[in-house]
Design a protein around this nucleic acid. Structure first.
Lengths: 167, 167
DNA sequence: GGGTAGATTGAGACTGAGTCTCATTACAAC
DNA sequence: GTTGTAATGAGACTCAGTCTCAATCTACCC
């Protein structure tokens, strides 16, 4: 019996608009970050940022390409890596084979991810400050033992999303 | 000024032998897991398991291929995905573009990862039971709000390893 | 305005991790 | 031994992601 490996590419919507940072402020912040690394905040980059800001979850490159088809794929990749270098975009490796991108936590808020191992969906969740304090102190303790300098952390919960539980 | 993207493939050693499970017991456990999914525990699969068991960190496919060159790459991939399906191997997406593989926690012990954002090295760290209890209860709380069924979790600490701090 | 240097872009070739196919081999059961 | 199924090796293939290069834009200076 051949095993069908999961190759689902479509990520079900659940993309509620983010309300946290107003878009003008966001653009200003990004521009500042780019300036620091001697980069301009061009139309293509703005389009990428605006798209990422409008979704409350990380987007894959296919979703980005579909949403802004006038930005070529190679440019989209370049924008994303430039923006990542400037510290305004974060690349996350999900449970499937596709990289996903989201605004850096500096521009939004610190959060973690729920990864559905069946459909590949990624859901953002915000931890309580108390939880974060605990995590950060423990992370520090773990890291220091290995001479490791911790800069950030990511807590991913793997499981089944609501939609996949019903099917 | 062109930006040199990090394309380091070599992962510095730090592969201390694991002492936890004796290799015979390990093989028996793996065999049982495979039997459950109607698979045999053949020589190629044993070689992969033995290799993963002998390192205290996740291995990339290149490392696996180099270590057991008589197992073709396509077979190695197949073994790994068969073993993953049987629940004895876990695939982890590191901070770089390369998937890495390690024995599932059922066969070793629950642990988390320190990911070096400079060289891509992955270090295993074992959390204290108290820490894990806290994490698990919070994970459950976060997940349940979204109707998400948590099965496991992964805490990755991103930062700079000892070696990269000195260079 | 024109000139210049450097950043940015689009198009498309290229790379390589990972997958798939298919003929062959190994093994279990009868 | 035969038969059916699982496992394997070789290599073609796919496609996410990268790289190159010529063209274009922009800031800045004269």
């Amino acid at each position: 019996m051949p095993v069908e490996r999961q190759r689902e590419k479509t990520v079900s919507s659940a993309g509620a608009p983010r309300e946290s940072t107003p878009i003008e402020t966001l653009h200003e912040l990004v521009a500042i970050h780019l300036l620091r690394t001697d980069q301009r905040y061009t139309a293509g980059r703005q389009a990428v940022i605006e798209l990422l800001a409008s979704f409350a979850r990380p987007l894959s490159i296919s979703e980005i390409s579909e949403a802004i088809p006038d930005v070529p794929r190679s440019s989209a990749y370049r924008h994303l890596s430039d923006l990542e270098r400037a510290g305004v975009v974060r690349r996350i490796a999900a449970s499937d084979e596709f990289a996903r991108f989201e605004l850096a936590e500096d521009l939004t808020h610190h959060h973690h991810h729920l990864l559905c191992s069946l459909c590949g969906k990624v859901i953002d969740v915000t931890p309580s400050p108390a939880f974060e304090r605990t995590v950060m102190s423990m992370v520090k303790e773990l890291a220091v033992q290995q001479g490791f300098e911790p800069l950030s952390h990511a807590l991913d919960v793997i499981g089944h999303c609501a939609a996949c539980q019903t099917t």
